[in-house]
Design a protein around this nucleic acid. Sequence first.
DNA 1: AAAAAAATCAAACGAACGTTTGATTGATTT
DNA 2: AAATCAATCAAACGTTCGTTTGATTTTTTT
Lengths: 216, 216
Amino acid sequence: MQTSVSEEKEPKERILTAAASLFATKGYAAVGVREIAELAQVNVSMISYYFSGKMGILKEIILRYFEEVRQIYEKTLAKELPPEETLKEIVYELVSLMKNKTIFCKVAITEMPFNLPEFAEFKAEVIRLHIDYIKQGLKLIELFVDDPKFSSIITPAMVSLVFSHFLFGPLIKKVWEIELDDNYYELYAKTISTLLLEGITGVKNQIKSNKQGEQI
Amino acid sequence: MQTSVSEEKEPKERILTAAASLFATKGYAAVGVREIAELAQVNVSMISYYFSGKMGILKEIILRYFEEVRQIYEKTLAKELPPEETLKEIVYELVSLMKNKTIFCKVAITEMPFNLPEFAEFKAEVIRLHIDYIKQGLKLIELFVDDPKFSSIITPAMVSLVFSHFLFGPLIKKVWEIELDDNYYELYAKTISTLLLEGITGVKNQIKSNKQGEQI
DNA sequence: AAAAAAATCAAACGAACGTTTGATTGATTT
DNA sequence: AAATCAATCAAACGTTCGTTTGATTTTTTT
């Protein structure tokens, strides 16, 4: 374990990295500003100076995460591949995002289910801002399953599928005792996208056979 | 929103329910003991009296959650159904567990990715105690995919698939504007288990075709 | 070189934290 | 009825919390 951030750029970025790393392991609310400042090797007051408060750091982390996801969606949808290929590519890109910026993503995802009163409004705003491209992603899935009820099941399922590995990260290492190298993550992306595509196809067939059942 | 716990049993149970409900919405670390006490309508000191500290409540919640899951596994495996049916039934049971005891499950799951130093040992112990039946569950999947590397991908994926709806619960209501009644949850369980079964079958086929590719 | 702006610091702020104390009440046992 | 035990309480414990202050240093601009 490192006790300080190694020769890293500007203080503002050091604070962000240190905080993200602490938030990722202990959760936002369990981390104190002094702990962040020590790891980032800055004075405590610098946190309010640069981020106007501890909450500002979390907001910045979440904004950056959503921006990365937005770019992935935009970049991939612009290619206008067939839906299956698009979905596969999005999964690949999301996995490599998680691999390269694990702690940022983990913070954004683990803090998502919570509803701190001071934070609810900001989160709702972020969701609102990004709802457009989320729905673009949904249209993709609705090419398979054109019922909003199914989208509301499959979309969160897709998100949590892709991120499951990183959520349970430390536990996985402990239980299976495997090495998490580049090969592993390639297999991971491939397996998850297959799981998802074949799964959705299965759901689609299930719906079809149900409809036929009703008609008889 | 209720400001107190309605005429409920023993004080100890009131504390547990109140705490779980607060932990579920704000996260363990963001909730204070006084807030819990107020909601449970007990004196603050009763928390240490019954649970020997705030952490004791969280431990109790997590223990109860794991016990419920253990019972589901045991009960279902005892039936000795074919693997597909077993998997399907486990998913159904897990969904209905989440439906009936949402806040307890949500707390257990959302706090799982974090590693508070005072809490790491307990969590490792719980995992160790339950590793046996988790591996029993794994054997199920290894009937489809007999490579531990794939299990390490598919098992967390399965868990997060089943729980995705409850993790993103409030967000789902907001985005899709749908009613979450019994019918919805029946569809939910059915869809998730299809997604999972067909997905795993797809992964299995992918592996098979890869192996054939190597042999040529 | 002087002036202005930005960055950093130690120190202190009041508030909230989880826990403990010691007295008091209510119920149970002798 | 007396003694014992469990349950509850208000109050205070010492810490830690996030933030702010006002002085000081460093950098940039004039």
